[in-house]
Write a protein that binds this DNA or RNA. Structure first.
Lengths: 124, 124
DNA sequence: TTCTTAATCAACCAGTTAGTTGATCAAGAG
DNA sequence: CTCTTGATCAACTAACTGGTTGATTAAGAA
């Protein structure tokens, strides 16, 4: 009953449900950074930032390496893709309500012109 | 300093960070449903499901209408798109680290001009 | 009117999260 | 060795989350 992928989705979405962690993601998208570097633009303590990074790490959104005393944090875009993959399952399905579908239309070319979808897929 | 759109992102990601609410989203992607219908596959009480729907509603992921005593819940895909829009800002940026891009490549067909420059500013 | 159904409101409880401060560990530098 | 830097660990608090049960509102049906 427990989909093992569920917990990872839980952690990932929860990790992004915090503006500080989203800012950390944004910063890491420009390259790896240490805890001190990440903590600098925030008013919160370094320990608090370290906890945020732990949350991101448990969600597998970032990884940490070693460099002498420093522990540089790297963004792992693969997990971000898992989130968009989940969302993309649903953001299109009710055709009466969508808006800008540009990117998705090509990946749904097989399903064009219909509004019924008998997908027996039951994720999360 | 605080982006007002931030709070909506907070709520939306937090709303999705729960398997029950993701199942509700999945169910609603197949059409509107009442609270009782949504509560049926769960073991939790109807009140708990009602709370979940409130969370989704505050995140503007769903809307509620009125039909006699029933209050059918509808999925609002627009907000899901806002989430993918946020993620898409970052999921590709570090070219040296990506992994499986299969699904993404087609949606980036128009973006073919961008490629990597090897870590120009990063001491390793 | 009374009865049933659909759903929310209110109060409460257990577990978790985000933040703090202070101590500790690990790796160089002197 | 000692000292400094980078980062984590430990303990604690305040606030929030997810769930419960019981009462209440709202709309029809009898």
């Amino acid at each position: 009953m427990d989909d093992p992928g569920d917990e990872l989705l839980d952690r990932a979405f929860l990790a992004l449900a915090d503006p500080a962690r989203r800012r950390i993601i944004a910063r890491l998208s420009r390259g790896p950074a240490t805890v001190n570097e990440l903590a600098e633009p925030f008013e919160i303590s370094k320990q608090a930032v370290s906890k945020h990074i732990q949350v991101l790490e448990q969600a597998q959104l970032v990884t940490r390496t070693r460099d002498a005393q420093r522990r540089p944090v790297h963004l792992d875009p693969a997990r971000l893709e898992a989130l968009t993959a989940w969302i993309d399952q649903y953001r299109l399905v009710r055709e009466g309500q969508f808006r800008s579908l540009d990117a998705v239309l090509k990946s749904l070319a097989a399903d064009s012109g219909k509004q019924s979808h008998e997908s027996a897929k039951d994720p999360s």
